[in-house]
Nucleic acid binder design. Structure first.
Length: 417
RNA sequence: GGAGAGGUCGCAUAGUGGCCUAGUGCGCACGCUUGGAAAGCGUGUAUACAGAAAUGUAUCGAGGGUUCGACUCCCUCCCUCUCCGCCA
């Protein structure tokens, strides 16, 4: 959420930003509602002041009659105000965050490649995709996943389970060594928290499973629970940013996602994720964003995965992000133009500036005693779907076996899948 | 799941319909006092919104209701504590 005062003072800039972000929203209508809202507020408050003043002592019969009238006026106005307030809030929530000046303009394909690791080693044989490899090695069962739950759910089996645990432990060790506090979060959250973090819990395009007869939903990422973690709090950041590494399951309906890259483990309804989350002062957020990216690179480098880093373009940022970097690993399954494969996203890190903290009311106390909204950032450390996917596809051998990355071997206890 | 007690300004507590624009104590800040300190004394000490400001309004777990008027009465829900039951 942007500050309404900022929108008032920078109308054209905000309009332009919405356009760049591919968000169709009527800013003029929002500002009109804002004016109506403020005018109405003044009116109600004046009436309430009258009532409060008159209500001090015991009023006479005559005065009571008048106060009754004032009361009716107030409740009438309040109803009108509620209506305006709802429309206003709904619109305000839809206004996307501002965009970093260096963010490339455009849509999904207009990203900028900002770093490429060592190129993938060309295979001396025709490589298989992970689905085929995993099925052959009895590491995964999609059919029974569909039987027991639904399509795009799965059973991980045998050493894939151990590989997943190894990946998580590798990530946990790496991040706790770098000052991140380890957390395991609930897998559900209140809808108001989802909305605060910037996820839409309802509606047709929702990506969220909601729990019947409750105001809870399954989380799509620990970003939700970790954003809610300090909601309504005033934090002390004098000793530096609060850095968390959070483990949770993630659930996504992936509504409307069929037809997109959809093979095997790439897009599934449930996975386990280790997510980094940082609360920091505004002046530190760009630095923290680079730190998150560097942690992600360190993790991928350690695994010896070939990858590139892209900066996501304005139209593909989503509501809360001010700037976003993705790491895309080389994947055989993306062999559309190249028989050897192509790049596919494995991690993503966003600087959400004060967009989430404003909604969730998370502040920090400055040295002069004042409070101010802080910045929040998030980034993927490990995902148990796309990471094993990339490992299996990149380190497959001619005989269909898979070499386990060296850094994971002390966790798995085996060298080959 | 059942029975009971509770949730008030950083902490602790007072407050059973108008004097609560929430009192008191502790803590904290500033000042006086002092050679310096402690004690003592005085002043101040929540957040949000509107407003240029004065100020106004809202908030006593959350949401509704009764009333001219709600911290106070009623309803629903959430959370904490004690006891009981059930259970991985």
């Amino acid at each position: 959420m942007l500050d309404i005062k900022f929108i008032r003072d920078n109308k054209e800039l905000v309009k332009e930003n919405c356009k760049n972000r591919n968000v169709n929203i009527d800013i003029d209508l929002l500002l009109n509602l804002d004016n109506e809202r403020r005018a109405g507020l003044k009116e109600v408050e004046t009436l309430r002041a009258l009532r409060n003043n008159k209500s001090k002592g015991k009023p006479t019969e005559e005065e009571i009659a008048k106060l009754r009238q004032v009361g009716e006026e107030i409740s009438g106005l309040e109803k009108k105000m509620e209506d305006i307030e709802n429309k206003y809030r709904e619109l305000l929530y839809k206004v996307p965050n501002l965009t970093h000046p260096e963010t490339p303009m455009g849509g999904e394909s207009d990203f900028k490649v900002i770093h490429t690791s060592a190129s993938p080693k060309p295979f001396k044989f025709i490589p298989k995709n992970h689905e085929e490899l995993m099925l052959n090695l009895d590491l995964i069962d999609f059919e029974r996943g569909a039987k027991v739950a639904a399509a795009k759910f799965y059973f991980s089996k045998n050493n894939l389970v151990r590989l997943n645990q190894a990946l998580l432990n590798y990530g946990i060790d790496m991040l706790t060594k770098n000052g991140y506090t380890l957390v395991e979060t609930p897998d559900v959250a209140k809808n108001e928290i989802l909305a605060g973090v910037g996820f839409n819990p309802r509606g047709e395009e929702t990506q969220v499973y909601s729990l019947e007869n409750t105001d809870l939903s399954l989380i799509g990422t620990a970003e939700i629970t970790m954003g809610g973690y300090h909601a309504q709090e005033v934090l002390d950041l004098s000793k530096g940013p609060k850095k968390y590494v959070a483990l949770s399951h993630c659930f996504r309906t992936e509504a409307g996602a069929y037809g997109k890259t959809n093979k095997g483990l790439y897009r599934v309804h449930q996975f386990t994720k280790l997510e980094m989350f940082i609360y920091c002062k505004p002046e530190d957020s760009e630095k923290m964003h680079l730190e998150l990216l560097s942690m992600e690179k360190k993790i991928a480098d350690g695994l010896k995965l070939p990858y590139r880093v892209i900066e996501v373009a304005s139209g593909d940022l989503g509501g809360p992000a001010y700037r976003k970097y993705d790491i895309e690993a080389w994947m055989v399954m993306n062999a559309e133009n190249d028989q050897q494969g192509g790049y596919g996203e494995i991690t993503s890190t966003s600087n959400c500036t004060d967009y989430q903290s404003r909604r969730l009311n998370i502040k920090y106390r400055k040295e002069n005693g004042e409070t101010e909204f802080m910045h929040t950032l998030n980034g993927t450390a490990i995902v148990t779907s796309r990471f094993p996917l990339a490992i299996v596809e990149n380190f497959q051998q001619k005989d269909g076996s898979v070499l386990v990355p060296k850094v994971l071997q002390k966790y798995t206890g085996f060298k080959k899948l």
